[in-house]
Design a protein around this nucleic acid. Structure first.
Length: 332
RNA sequence: AAGCCCGUAGCUCAAUUGGCAGAGCGUCCGACUCCAAAUCGGAAGGCUGGGGGUUCGAGCCCUCCCGGGCUUGCCA
């Protein structure tokens, strides 16, 4: 049996090229040779303030984005987290083998809680739910970015502690270190591309072409470098986007040509931007078209229902084992 | 549950005794630039958390509600 992989993404905001080039592209590739379970994590989304009128639509929309990007429901399981409520049941139990001190050490919690005026307990216990997401499917691999490594290590600790206390059940999930595509904000190349920094900082995968052109054109570069000098962060970021886009398109020549021009000090940044924009659209356009086709077909809800059904089958089996090992409930 | 403090533009905060709701940052447009940034010029942006009241006049005073923070409790 192929190695099982789990990963999730929050349904807040739209998918941006940092998400796609950094993570989702790998999700798609992992489908070859792995047994993949992909999840739109709406339980996680409500750890911060979210509009209930928008959440469900956002979850569906994110699922649609993922399908458009190439997540294949024939090969993988795609579902919305709250459609498999066993995630939260396991989360409670795992919370009881998680140390308070471990949670208090999570840097992402510290960062996020500083920015919120209302800090929910859910934000604090978030990594436990994340561990439940992974362990309930006994996933062996989890594709993660650098920012999630700490959380995955906690998941491993939780699995280990559960096994030690209640008997061997969960395999320790291994990180799948993906090609280090860390796309930076175009407006501020010192910080990672994110939706929270505002619309000028990210390029949406489904964004209108004219808008994307504008954003790529306004990318921060530098005042001009002398030949032989290292690239500035902004230029390096454009090259990174260009490189991944060209790789996807099977175009090896363009990047090396532009890099040679850069080394000679005769690269015009306007040209780099135009080329990057063009190649990026070469990648995004088919995704956008596919999204339109899938949306028109109108079977996303069916796909998600089927995904939830298949995920539930695994999750409820694991929960039977968990309840048995822990001794929960009156019925055996 | 009680006490105290807080809520003003997207964000951080001003606003004299109760007297025209403002600034910085961000956003948008323009100039400059190979493209951008920075800089300069311009613009948009508000039910002052909500309801009621006092007053000629309320961001400011009274009252209730909602939300947040801190403190001391109560119940499980």
């Amino acid at each position: 049996m192929a190695k099982r992989v789990f990963s999730g993404i929050q349904p807040t905001g739209t998918l941006h090229i940092g998400n796609y080039l950094g993570a989702i592209r790998n999700w798609v590739d992992l489908q070859r040779g792995h047994d993949c379970i992909y999840c739109v994590v709406d339980y996680h989304a409500i750890t911060i303030d979210v509009d209930p009128k928008e959440l469900r639509a956002a979850s569906r929309s994110m699922a649609l984005d993922l399908l458009a990007c190439g997540v294949d429901p024939e090969r993988s399981i795609l579902f919305v987290q709250a459609d498999v409520p066993q995630h939260t049941e396991l989360s409670w139990i795992l919370g009881c083998v998680t140390s308070y001190g471990d949670l208090a050490r999570m840097t992402q919690f510290k960062d996020k809680s500083e920015k919120q005026e209302f800090v929910s307990a859910g934000l604090f216990t978030y990594p436990i739910l994340q561990a439940a997401d992974i362990l309930i499917y006994k996933a062996l691999g989890v594709p993660v970015g650098e920012d999630q490594v700490q959380h995955l290590e906690l998941s491993r600790r939780i699995a280990r502690r559960f096994n030690a206390r209640f008997g061997e059940l969960f395999p320790e999930p291994e990180p799948i270190v993906t090609k280090g595509a860390r796309i930076m904000s175009l407006a501020d190349p010192a910080s990672k591309m994110s939706k929270s920094a505002g619309p000028t900082h990210y390029v949406g995968v489904m964004e209108a072409e004219s808008s994307i052109r504008k954003k790529v054109r306004s990318a921060v570069t530098d005042v001009g470098l002398t030949p032989g000098e290292a690239m500035s962060a902004g230029v390096a970021n454009l090259f990174l986007i260009l490189e991944i886009a060209c790789e996807t398109l099977g175009d090896a020549a363009t990047v090396s040509e532009l890099k040679a021009e850069f080394a000679d000090g005769r690269l015009l940044y306007s040209q780099l931007k135009d080329t990057t924009f063009e190649r990026l659209m070469g990648v995004l356009r088919p995704i956008q078209e596919r999204r339109a086709r899938i949306a028109a077909a109108g079977d996303v809800d069916d796909i998600l229902a089927d995904g939830a059904r298949r995920a539930s089958a695994i999750a409820s089996q694991t929960m039977r084992e968990v309840r048995d090992k822990v001794g929960l409930g009156a019925a055996a």
